[in-house]
Computed example of a mutant assay.
Amino acid sequence: MADLLWRRATTPTGRPGALAGYRQLLAAQVRSQLQYRASFAMDLVGNLLLTLMDVAAVVVLFRVTPVLGGFTLPEVLLISGLANLSFSLCDLAVGNIDTMRQYIRTGRFDAVLTRPLSALLQLVCGDLALRRLGRVTQAVVVLVIALNLAHVRWTPARAVLLVVAPSFGAVLFGSVFVAGSTVSFWFIESGEFSNAFTYGGRDFTAYPITVYAGWFRKAFAYGLGFAFVAYYPALAILDKPDPLGGPRLLSWSSPVVALAAAGVAAFIWRIGIRHYRSTGS
């Protein structure tokens, strides 16, 4: 299918049109998933309801304590909403990179490398799961509710941060997805290893980092940058000082951290591609 779409996306002179190739792949995925509309709707609603479990867990915690790590329920919901929206956007855009180990095991990755398209973008575009839009919708709803409950004092800077923070959070999550999946070039059965950082990072970012301690907080919050997905942007939006004593500049550092993470992930990916050896199948 991908080869057929690629041939259709060539220019009249026979030269490949990369943008057209990606567009054809995405369009084919959308058409195939909308063939059975009832099934698609059920998947969409199911994804929405499943992610409500994350919000329910937060609410249950506040049944036994009025404050969690120095934050009230509306404040934690804001952190959780930002984290879930960031992860949902990432999962929608690049979540398919998780399938790379299947491509390597079966030899299908060889075919990916023979096409004059970016191998990474082919993997991302190869199976766009539109049902994940349910998670994005749920995260937006939770975020709007949290903002209303938290009584945010809006300024232009905070409004801009609210818009861009989920995007940069998605970039950071996407960097972890790509870097974790690259391990498959050396260890094919590395799914659980990478999931510990991707899905584990999602759960980590849904709560204030003040609830964690010791090396665990240092490794995940600062070493992997997860504190900059939701915790520090939420502090800036709430105009709340960091209970850990960090400078206010950290609350506005998400773009820098996300772009740095993307650079590291791209470097790791290039190393993995260069060291890839065909399965011979």
Rank of each mutant, 00 (worst) to 15 (best):
R105I: 00
T137K: 00
L19N: 09
V140R: 07
F109M: 02
L259M: 13
L224K: 00
A56R: 06
L34K: 01
R158T: 14
F197N: 02
S253M: 15
L250E: 10
L77K: 09
Q35S: 12
G201I: 02
V76E: 04
G70Q: 09
V160H: 03
A57Q: 11
R274Q: 14
S80P: 00
M42R: 14
A221W: 06
S86E: 08
D43A: 13
A2P: 03
F204K: 01
A159E: 09
F40P: 01
V142N: 05
G17E: 12
V160D: 04
P247F: 03
A18P: 07
G180C: 04
Y22G: 08
L244N: 06
T210L: 08
A206D: 11
R131I: 00
N96Q: 13
A261W: 06
R108C: 03
S184R: 07
V140S: 10
G134T: 09
T51K: 08
T279H: 04
T106Q: 10
R15T: 14
V112E: 03
T65C: 02
V178H: 00
E75F: 02
F87Y: 15
V140E: 08
R15L: 13
A56W: 13
T10H: 12
L259K: 07
P233E: 05
T198P: 01
E75D: 07
R115M: 13
V112M: 09
T13E: 15
W154C: 10
F228M: 04
L128F: 13
A139F: 08
L244E: 11
A111M: 05
L61D: 02
H275N: 15
L147P: 00
A57R: 10
R108A: 15
W252M: 06
T198W: 04
R158P: 01
R132K: 15
S88D: 11
V229C: 02
G17C: 14
I237P: 04
F187C: 06
G95D: 02
K240S: 06
A165E: 09
R131D: 12
F173H: 13
R217P: 08
L113N: 01
S254H: 06
V211S: 02
L73T: 09
V30C: 08
W252T: 04
T205I: 07
N148Q: 15
M100R: 12
G46L: 08
P74V: 11
V45K: 10
L259R: 05
P166R: 09
T72N: 04
R153G: 11
L68I: 14
D91W: 12
F173C: 05
D91F: 10
V171E: 03
V178F: 05
L89A: 07
A146M: 09
V140L: 15
D110G: 05
V141M: 14
D54M: 11
E75A: 01
R105C: 00
V64H: 15
V140K: 08
F177S: 03
G214V: 06
K240T: 05
A260E: 00
V178N: 03
V178Y: 06
G174R: 06
D91G: 03
F177Q: 10
V45S: 07
I104R: 12
F185A: 02
T51Y: 12
P208A: 05
S118T: 05
R135L: 00
A213T: 14
K218R: 15
N47C: 07
P156E: 07
S88K: 02
D239R: 12
A261L: 08
L73Q: 11
A57M: 13
Y207P: 00
